[in-house]
């Protein structure tokens, strides 16, 4: 039966469903409900919740718990995520699975607590040091928060790599019906974990490879893994894209706005369609290029000054003109606003 649930809370419920019994975090608006509900719920199913002294400590606790073979999660928002970047790089380097949630707020600096999509570069392009990738999923609804968090745990384990839920203050704070059923969760064996047992005594978790040859070997190994991930895990959805003259591209909350924009525009006889990347890394580049084939123009809408825009341009590789509209600072455009903007730009061309 459905339950009315906040996006941030759905993440915690997904974690519990996925068998995550370890949460280490530090509160920050607009992600605090994740820590609060983790604190309330996870200990009741025999798990560990610990409020760390900082995001730096939190992500390193995640490193420790993951080393010990646990499904583990932390959640934060922009400023906290910046602090976690070091640890995320270590997780990727040491090939440790973990789920990190970034409920993006306005930046740079302290910015504000309103929704933005300005952490795209930091999360999708890997804000930490070194050759690594995060698996990045972008939910657009409360049900998405739940499903994609479970998927994040599965992908993190499958590829032994951090997976990030990149969402924003709106999806985190909003409430929608959430359908949950008890699921049988299969957690993979982790023979590499260090558990303090005779069986795992020979195991080592590290990201240091001092010799150039060793490190190159390791980085090539990661590279091959990422290629495999790119091949298998790109996810997206489309709406009225088949006959679209203008293809809108947006993720997360923006995809919801654009879906409404498509409806409004079609009522006015303007053929708009929507392409919504669900995985931001791997980016569904091929699907986007295919979907865009029949349209005359692509328009990216983002709550940033143009971060995902680069990936869209790379995917289309100059085959289509790419227009861009954005709002920042915590302003989220309405469907009507985007529609009016598209209309105005078409008028200007005439």
């Amino acid at each position: 039966m459905r339950q009315l649930c906040k996006g941030n809370v759905a993440i915690v419920k997904a974690a519990i469903t996925a068998g995550c019994r370890s949460y280490y975090g530090y509160p920050i608006t607009p992600a605090s409900e994740i820590a609060e509900y983790a604190a309330l719920l996870i200990p009741q199913v025999g798990g560990t919740f610990l409020q760390a002294e900082s995001e730096v400590a939190a992500i390193n606790m995640v490193y420790g718990a993951s080393s010990a073979g646990q499904r583990v999660m932390t959640g934060s928002s922009g400023p906290g995520l910046s602090l976690m970047q070091e640890g995320i790089s270590y997780l990727a380097g040491a090939e440790l699975p973990a789920v990190v949630v970034d409920v993006v707020r306005g930046g740079p600096g302290l910015g504000n607590i309103a929704p933005e999509q300005s952490d795209y570069f930091a999360v999708v392009k890997g804000g930490g040091h070194g050759n690594y990738r995060n698996i990045v999923l972008a939910p657009a609804s409360v049900q998405d928060m739940y499903e994609l968090t479970i998927l994040a745990f599965e992908l993190a384990d499958k590829y032994r790599n951090p997976a990030v839920i990149l969402t924003d203050g709106f999806v985190g704070q909003m409430m929608e019906p959430l359908e949950i059923e008890e699921r049988e969760v299969k957690q993979p064996e982790k023979p590499w974990a260090v558990k303090g047992t005779a069986e795992t005594r020979k195991n080592l978790i590290t990201s240091i490879q001092l010799s150039a040859d060793q490190l190159e070997l390791h980085v090539r190994h990661l590279e091959a893994k990422y290629k495999e991930c790119e091949k298998n895990e790109a996810r997206y959805e489309t709406y009225m894209a088949d006959d679209a003259e203008i293809l809108l591209v947006g993720y997360g909350i923006v995809s919801r706005v654009l879906r409404s924009t498509v409806d409004i525009a079609r009522q006015h006889g303007m053929k708009l369609g929507l392409f919504r990347p669900i995985s931001l890394w791997p980016y569904p580049s091929k699907a986007l290029a295919d979907t865009a084939k029949k349209c005359s123009k692509v328009m990216v809408v983002e709550l940033s000054t143009g971060q995902m825009l680069e990936d869209v341009k790379l995917a289309l590789n100059g085959t289509k003109p790419v227009d861009f509209y954005s709002r920042v600072g915590g302003n989220v455009p309405s469907a009507e606003e985007v529609h009016a903007e598209i209309f105005a730009r078409m008028e200007a061309l005439v």
Binding site: S22, Y24, T48, L50, A52, V56, A57, A58, N60, M61, V62, Y63, G64, A65, S67, A68, G69, Q70, V72, V194, K195, G196, T197
Partner: peptide
């Protein structure tokens, strides 16, 4: 921090 979670996990 790493030790904290290792110990709590096992």
């Amino acid at each position: 921090a790493v030790a904290t979670a290792l110990r709590r996990s096992n």
